[in-house]
């Protein structure tokens, strides 16, 4: 296969775009897709202070590096989940990455917050993934607001977004469908959130990370086995192979024609959020989910709890 632009031997084949690229031309393609994603959805400008959530995986590190190369004002935020084996490795990767590239980094330690994920897991009688996600979103948001960042960016890619959209659609979850997308405005105690990699697949980000020499953490989370999103990604991989380009079409179609309809419906029937009476975090209950997890760790095993602040 030859590179579409320069006719050198291709190193990345992109069936979704009916093309292939050599290393240099692929990196140019990647940069242009990120820039296009930012401009199309007006995600941020060079005046914004951007907090980038860094898990240590290929997506978040690729996002951080590319935004830095494009001249944006970025600072990394790593949440140390205190999972033995996994968390020290992920944190080490993030710290070495930021040091190598001279990038600012903030680390929040869940052990010090009394929210070590193994402890949370031991207390819950349901999968820990939703609680872990809730805790991470809480600290992403809190750090962005506390430290006066104007935008919170995550490394969610097209495959992540498609899996989430598919899940939300299977449940016809109007609240989530009303605001899913690469741009979520600041509102009622939530920081502005963006996903600049929304046009790029996981495969494209992996190739970028390899070609840029990004050392990343690729061991799966020891607690994530059987997550439904993994299954949805597999389904969509099969579909995309038969019908190249369908993922991006489906997602863009949703943003243009689907989300506005669900947003109107949610405006009419949506649940109002107010500040948690303990910490001020937006919630549909009196006490937010993270404060309830803290209670559970202190006092008693957790039963069912709400899922109100998942945005």
């Amino acid at each position: 296969m030859k590179c579409k632009r320069c006719k050198e031997t291709a190193v990345v084949s992109l069936p979704s775009h009916h093309t292939g690229f050599c290393a240099d031309c692929f990196l140019l393609f990647f940069t242009r897709q990120v820039e296009r994603g930012i401009k199309e959805r007006k995600l941020f400008t060079h005046d914004d202070r951007i907090l980038v959530a860094l898990s240590g995986g290929k997506d978040s590190l690729s996002l951080m590096l590319e935004l830095s190369r494009l001249g944006y004002d970025v600072t990394g935020l790593h949440i140390d989940l205190a999972i033995p084996g996994s968390s020290p490795a992920a944190r080490g990767v993030v710290e070495r990455f930021c040091e190598k590239h001279g990038l600012n980094l903030i680390v929040k330690e869940m052990g010090a917050e009394g929210l070590a994920i193994p402890d949370v897991k031991a207390r819950l009688n349901r999968p820990v993934c939703s609680a872990c996600g809730k805790i991470k979103r809480y600290f992403f948001n809190k750090t962005a607001l506390d430290e006066k960042f104007t935008v919170l960016a995550t490394g969610h890619n097209l495959d992540d977004e498609i899996a989430r959209l598919f899940s939300n659609t299977l449940r016809w979850d109007v609240a989530y469908l009303s605001d899913q997308g690469p741009d979520l405005a600041a509102d009622g105690g939530f920081a502005r959130k963006v996903k600049p990699l929304w046009r790029l697949s996981e495969f494209e980000t992996a190739n970028y990370a390899f070609l840029m020499g990004i050392e990343h953490h690729y061991a799966p989370c020891p607690y994530s086995g059987g997550a439904s999103f993994t299954f949805y990604k597999k389904l969509w991989t099969d579909l995309e192979e038969e019908m190249p380009g369908r993922k991006l079409d489906f997602y863009q179609g949703f943003l243009e024609r689907g989300r506005p309809v669900f947003a109107r419906a949610d405006n009419e029937d949506g649940v109002d959020l107010s500040g948690c009476t303990r910490c001020g975090y937006p919630t549909s209950n009196e006490v937010c989910g993270v404060c309830r997890i803290r209670d559970a760790l202190r006092d008693k095993p957790v039963g069912a709890d709400g899922a109100e602040e998942a945005k």
Binding site: V11, A23, F203
Partner: peptide, 15 residues
């Protein structure tokens, strides 16, 4: 599936 893995030989990507 080809779009779920990168393949490397001698430090270089392969299509």
């Amino acid at each position: 599936r080809p779009t779920t893995a990168i393949v490397v030989r001698d430090g270089g990507l392969l299509t």
